[in-house]
């Protein structure tokens, strides 16, 4: 039986959500197309992790080696190459994450495999792969039909699939030997750097008022702050606002910032790029204010206001001030 190989992603002893999202995608596709699912766990002293994978796939392949203690492109490329050559899977899934983005393109080039990055959906028809991607910052959907191939490499967007994968399986755990580390290019992992001490923890807030590039200029931030104060909310932001240093990095929501799940998330002038969505789409209620009716944020918001935020905010604040 052909196989879908899923590269399990973990960091500092924890499996990351993307691993289960990929397994969810793999199992769904596997069921429809009669394909087995194998999780590939690369690491060192990972015994605790394989147990969590067993229930969600048909096979757990474990490669243990001190060289794999931390993610490093050099070793991961060799290890993954070994596994792919060994298993010859039809599909290999990698997360479109800081690891997957670092690994997939070089892997594809090395093995001359067709690669599609940042996919949000997958399908197989007569062995031919179809993928859905979102391009132009989420403004356009692109449905790609791939040319026939015996093997595809796919990176999946975080959050595109459910992480609550069914745990009905009981995959065998199989150890595979690590390769001789011969083709290394000298990249060394030196350590993790946590962001500086933060002023507030946006992840702990019940209500977030979040501003994006649409705020226009730092002088407008008080508008949002006043509103946040009026409703007892915390101020957060999209990446460009943090890049511009209009708010500290600790306030950034999204894949490279924080994941939040407040009761109410109010997105002001945020277009809704998936990296941002990934950090907030599980909020219980999302309200978006954006002057572009086509902004992708409206696709995941529960309530939308199509207007200039500078007009909306003072009026909204007023509604709470007067009570």
């Amino acid at each position: 039986m052909d196989e879908i190989l899923v590269l399990a992603e973990h960091r500092q002893g924890e499996l990351r959500d993307i691993t289960f999202e990929m397994l969810f995608a793999a199992n769904t596709l596997g069921k429809e197309n009669d394909l087995a699912t194998a999780a590939l766990l690369l690491g060192h002293e990972t015994s605790g992790l394989s147990g969590k994978l067993k229930g969600a796939c048909d096979r757990v392949l474990v490669m243990e080696d001190p060289e794999l203690a931390h993610y490093n492109a050099d070793q991961y490329l060799m290890a993954l190459e070994t596994a792919i050559k060994d298993r010859k899977p039809l599909l290999t899934l990698i997360g479109h994450t800081a690891i997957g983005m670092d690994l997939a393109p070089a892997m594809a080039a090395r093995l001359s495999l067709p690669l599609v990055t940042d996919c949000v959906d997958l399908s197989l028809e007569e062995g031919r792969l179809g993928v859905l991607r979102q391009i132009y910052g989420g403004k356009i959907n692109a449905q790609l039909a791939m040319k026939p191939s015996d093997h595809y490499l796919i990176s999946l967007r975080t959050g595109a699939f459910d992480a609550e994968v069914e745990q009905g399986k009981s995959g065998d755990v199989e150890t595979i030997p690590a390769p001789a580390w011969t083709n290394l290019r000298g990249r060394q992992f030196l350590g993790y750097v946590e962001a500086e001490l933060e002023d507030v923890d946006i992840a702990a807030a019940d209500i977030l008022v979040s501003i994006g590039r649409g705020i226009g200029k730092p002088e407008n931030i008080p508008l949002a702050q006043e509103f946040a104060d009026a409703i007892g909310a915390t101020l957060s932001c999209s990446r460009p606002v943090a890049d511009e240093e209009w708010l500290p990095k600790s306030r950034q929501v999204g894949t490279s910032g924080k994941t939040v799940r407040p009761k109410v998330y109010i997105a002001l002038g945020i277009s809704g790029a998936y990296q941002h969505q990934a950090g907030m789409k599980n909020a219980d209620t999302i309200i978006a204010v954006n002057k572009d009716p086509m902004a992708p944020i409206f696709a995941i918001a529960h309530y939308g206001i199509v207007d200039d935020l500078a007009q909306v905010l003072p009026v909204l604040t007023e509604h709470f001030a007067k009570k």
Binding site: P114, K139, Q143, L144, Y303, I305
Partner: peptide, 28 residues
């Protein structure tokens, strides 16, 4: 290219947010 064809579309509208309407004051 390993891509055979690409079909673009605008993400479906209509699903997603309930767009609030009325005067600015009513919306707020």
């Amino acid at each position: 290219s390993r891509v055979d064809s690409q079909k673009l579309s605008l993400p479906p509208v209509g699903e997603g947010a309930d767009i609030l309407t009325g005067s600015l004051d009513e919306i707020c």
